[in-house]
Every structure is written in structure tokens, then in C-alpha cells.
Design a protein around this nucleic acid. Structure first.
Lengths: 175, 175
DNA sequence: ACGCAGGTAAAACGATCGTTTTACCTTGGG
DNA sequence: CCCAAGGTAAAACGATCGTTTTACCTGCGT
């Protein structure tokens, strides 16, 4: 059934564009062109739907993003924003809107963050030949910072962050 | 009257900890130990209250933060988080929760961002002797990224971001 | 002594929230 | 042929939302 995709696509779009709490189930039902009965049959309730949206976003993001090199990482981010618009990190926003109080959502956010950290740590090892927590934290900060700051400064921040990250990595590559 | 401070303090605490939309006026009235009549006499309505909270936060943040050197900037951020807790940027969160649709709030967020950008640009000039948009964007990304990533990685990200920013600035200081 | 500015407590407003229910299709397989 | 599965449309649920109103109290200036 593409009914699940229809529902999840509408939910992700509305949650992302207008916020989670500001998006009522009524508006969601209307936008997804489904009946509320069907929506609740498929999603359970709003919290579960939010969690599924995050889970799907998680999958799609790591499917899209290329962690093979630092350059590729920030290029992927720029591509993502060009295709999806720049509205900041949906996981951070979900956690902030819910105060971390809804376990199913907090779990999805934590899972995303853990995988993000791991992928960056592996990237560091791959590019410099050794683990380096501080370098990984720096790339993470540049990645998150580009995501946030690009919402009001535009895509130029991503270029700036990429060149900074590459500088850091190159400095470690040949000492 | 400290009635305004009482109201704004409670509002900022609840909005920050639990989110803007998730914080009802009922809970706010209870927590501020005021009557709803008094709250609406002082604040007008919820949107105006949110905007005033952001305006006050803006003032307080720039009063606290030391933009004189790159080191001082990230030290200030670490101090702020130690004192206030780490929950990410309240301005970004306000914009995201409202989808940018409430003009009074969007204006406060834009004003904050503009001043942040300006202060960092001046910091760059002060430390390197010339304007450098790319360097300013890099420091901005590190600043925003530290703010966001510290919510799940902790204060270590701030140290990492500071050392990265200082490296960048020093590389420009003596060429 | 009095009035009024400005506070409280509590009820009430209509709107909207998330969710469930009722009643009615449509459709593919035995 | 028909019946279960699974969809729609729409009404209804109680809770809570943001906001206003009613009724009362208090303290201060003249």
C-alpha cells in the first residue's frame, strides 16, 4: 500500500514546515487525503506517528549522506538542503518541542545522534588513520552548526564549514 | 514592580524547558503565581509574551557574552550552559515551532541573528586585522554547532569548537 | 473616610485538540 | 453472489487551548 507512504510523506512535510505541536491531526488528515479513521488505524496515535516520521527520516538521511570523506559529507549536506529546503535538524527540533518527555520520540532522536556520532568517528579513522574524539567533535559541531546557521545565513555557511573541516582533517593526515 | 520579572522568568523557564507550544497559559499562570487577568494585562497575549521572552533573552545573552576574543566567546558559551543548562538555541527553536509565521517572533529571531553575525564579524576584524566573511561564517557555524551538539554530547563539544575556532583565527593572525 | 488602581480567584467563552464512533461505501476472492 | 476487509465522510467525545469576564479584595493618596 502506498497509504503508509502517503501518510508519512504528508506528516513529515507538515511537521518539518510548521512544527510538530502546531500541526494538528485534522490538518494532517486533510493534507494526506485520508480519513482520520484510516490514519489512526495505520499510525496508532500522534506520538507514534511522530516517532515513525523520525525513524523514516533517519533511514532516508543516512541513505542519502555520503560519509566516505569530509568533503563528501558536507557536499551531501548541501545537496540535501538544495532538495529539501533549510529548516534545521528535525531531530533536535522534535526533542526540543517535546522537552524529551515522550520516550518513543526521545529514543528515535538518541538513535539518530548515536549513528551520526559513529559515522563521523569512522570517517575520522578512515581519513587520518587513527581515532580522534576531539577532531570528531569538531566535525560534528561544524556539521550541526552548518545545519542550524544555514537557516538564516544560507548555503554559504556549508561551504565555510566544509573548508574548515577539510583543513582540520588535512592537518592530521600528514603531520 | 517585579511582577514583570516574575512573569518573564517563569515564561522563559517553561518555554525553554518544555517548548513554546507545549506550554499552556494555564500552566504558566500557575507557575508564575499570578492570576490570568494580571498576566494578560501585562503581556497582552501569548505571542507577545513569547516575543518579550526572546527580547529579554537577547538582551541578557549579549550582556553575558564576551565577544572580545575567540577564546572568550566560547568560554562565555560554556559558562552560559553551566549556569542555564544545555537545551540548544531558544531563538532557532522559537522560529522552528512557529514556522516563521508569527511576525513579532520572527522579528525578534532575526534581530538576534543579525546582532550575532555582526558581533562575530567585528571579532574577526579585531583579531585578524581585516574583515573575512568566510572566517566569520566558520566561527558562527562552530558556535551554533557547539550550542546544538552539546545538548547530546555535552560540554566537551564546546572545548573542541573553541580550539578549532582559535586555530582558524591564529592561522589568519600571522600569515 | 473614600475611591480607585490594580491585584486575586474562579467561572465561562468558543475554538481546537487528539481520538473514537457511527454509518455507509467499495472491492476482490471463495 | 456475497461477505469480510478496509476504505470514506462526518459527527461526537472529553480535554485543553488562549482569552475574557465576573465578583471580590486590598492598600494607598487625598
Amino acid at each position: 500500500m502506498d497509504i503508509d507512504q502517503q501518510l508519512l510523506a504528508a506528516a513529515e512535510r507538515l511537521f518539518d514546515r510548521n512544527g510538530f505541536n502546531a500541526t494538528g491531526m485534522g490538518k494532517l488528515v486533510r493534507e494526506a487525503r485520508l480519513s482520520s479513521r484510516t490514519v489512526y488505524k495505520h499510525a496508532g496515535n500522534k506520538n507514534a506517528l511522530m516517532a515513525r516520521v523520525l525513524s523514516e527520516r533517519h533511514r532516508r538521511f543516512f541513505e542519502h549522506t555520503d560519509f566516505s570523506t569530509t568533503t563528501a559529507l558536507f557536499d551531501s549536506l548541501a545537496e540535501w538542503f538544495a532538495a529539501e529546503g533549510i529548516r534545521g535538524c528535525l531531530f533536535f527540533r522534535a526533542e526540543a518541542e517535546t522537552g524529551g518527555d515522550i520516550p518513543e520520540i526521545a529514543a528515535e532522536v538518541a538513535a539518530y545522534h548515536q549513528q551520526l556520532i559513529e559515522h563521523i568517528a569512522e570517517l575520522v579513522v578512515r581519513e587520518t588513520g587513527q581515532a580522534d574524539t576531539q577532531l570528531a567533535d569538531q566535525i560534528l559541531a561544524l556539521f550541526e552548526g552548518a545545519t542550524t546557521a544555514a537557516t538564516y545565513r544560507g548555503a554559504a555557511v556549508i561551504d565555510a564549514a566544509r573548508s574548515c573541516a577539510c583543513q582540520l582533517v588535512n592537518a592530521r593526515t600528514r603531520p
